[in-house]
Design a protein around this nucleic acid. Structure first.
Lengths: 225, 225
DNA sequence: AATAAAACATGACAATTATCATATTAAAAC
DNA sequence: GTTTTAATATGATAATTGTCATGTTTTATT
């Protein structure tokens, strides 16, 4: 099994602020495993007793609403930490995490991380920065949900996914989502999301190869009012 | 001028985790003043170079959207800290803060707080918890915005304001908001907010005395589907 | 107190979005 | 390879919400 001290993934998240000794300690109690596409990693209401360091793959964080829809609030990709918040607030999770790909993760038990949070101010300040960033992102999402049309929100979702998670060699978005997932990101009915995507296709803003989506005109999408 | 060490307000926020020495130091460099209703405390894009400890009054945190509307993201009341996030992320504010009442605040310069964040793990863990809580709240707002009707959202906003900020002796909500503010919390047109409130009134769920709103049936509001 | 300016209210209508029905296509199971 | 199932697609229609017009009330100003 790999060692945290030597793991390159940690460069991309707060774990980089841990000392060598701390990393060695964590390395000894972590469990590293793979999660199959579609697996629910934790559910709403679950006690999440640790943090997942995502070595590969992507998962979605979503919340079930009363009308049966599953609003996607955030996506966590390679390099990021999953389950930070529940850990800190000492409450059960308010979100469900589901793997969108096959994932490779390391699970670090809560007790270890809490210890470091309490002893290493640099680490805890780093986590704080991460969280401040998430909060800022959440504010933007609130404003978008409240003030923009489905068409605008979907265009922005495509741009976001393109810019944040990148594209395959053939130019298609590297994160493969169902139309339902898109609807759940944007907060609309699946049919509406499908309709808008079809429209984008007609307008030449995107093209599709099966489920895969390729952005043909990033500028065009950005210009949508 | 009052001393932080003796201030009861700090009980309600993270400052309670500071040591006596730290509080004395902060007390010596804080400035305490009043802010008139309607004053913009800081704007989007401003560098917020400190934290406000709210001793009395309420303010709203909002973000301007492209269509000219001003989405309210959060309200900060007596006892809470204002400007935490911008402080931590070292970025300019993404939100505007506007006083809804006359406010009494203490302003603590950034450098002092950052020093404590880096030296007092208990304090920084407390701020972390606060932020985790805000994030959870933000998630809930996203889901509500995305999945619920204006009617439902407005009912929930009324319940939230009632439960979080309390009522006057005559039973009216203690936070006095314009219809436009309600619209900006719920993320709808002012006319729509007015219409829904009128409807609630007709249904006997609320009553009004001028701008003041009194909730007549909390259960009725909760039952709205 | 008279006037001006906001804020509140409501109607009429348009635009957006959801829902239901029903094809069509793609993927999974046998 | 065929059957079954799930995902995608599109039309028709209803429900929700936004916009514009206009009137009324409240609040502020002189």
């Amino acid at each position: 099994m790999g060692k945290c001290e030597q793991c390159i993934i940690k460069q991309f998240n707060s774990l980089k602020s841990l000392t060598k000794d701390e990393l060695v300690r964590i390395s000894n109690c972590k469990t590293s495993y793979t999660i199959k596409k579609g697996t629910v990693i934790f559910e709403e209401g679950d006690a999440v007793n640790g943090v997942y360091c995502v070595k590969d793959g992507i998962c979605k964080l979503s919340k079930l609403s009363e009308n049966g829809k599953d609003q996607i609030v955030k996506m966590v990709v390679k390099g990021q930490l999953l389950g930070q918040r529940s850990l800190i607030s000492d409450e059960n999770s308010n979100l469900q995490a589901t793997a969108l790909n096959d994932m490779e993760v390391c699970f670090i038990p809560k007790s270890e991380i809490i210890m470091d949070l309490q002893k290493n101010p640099k680490f805890s300040f780093d986590v704080l920065k991460d969280m401040a960033h998430d909060l800022r992102e959440a504010d933007d999402i609130i404003v978008n949900m409240a003030q923009k049309s489905v068409r605008q929100r979907l265009a922005e979702a495509l741009i976001y996914i393109h810019d944040s998670f990148g594209v395959n060699p053939d130019g298609t978005l590297s994160v493969l989502l169902s139309r339902e997932d898109f609807a759940n990101i944007v907060g609309t009915a699946t049919e509406s999301a499908i309709r808008v995507l079809s429209q984008f296709k007609k307008e030449g803003l995107i093209s599709t190869i099966g489920k895969q989506i390729k952005i043909e005109s990033l500028d065009g999408l950005k210009r949508i009012e």
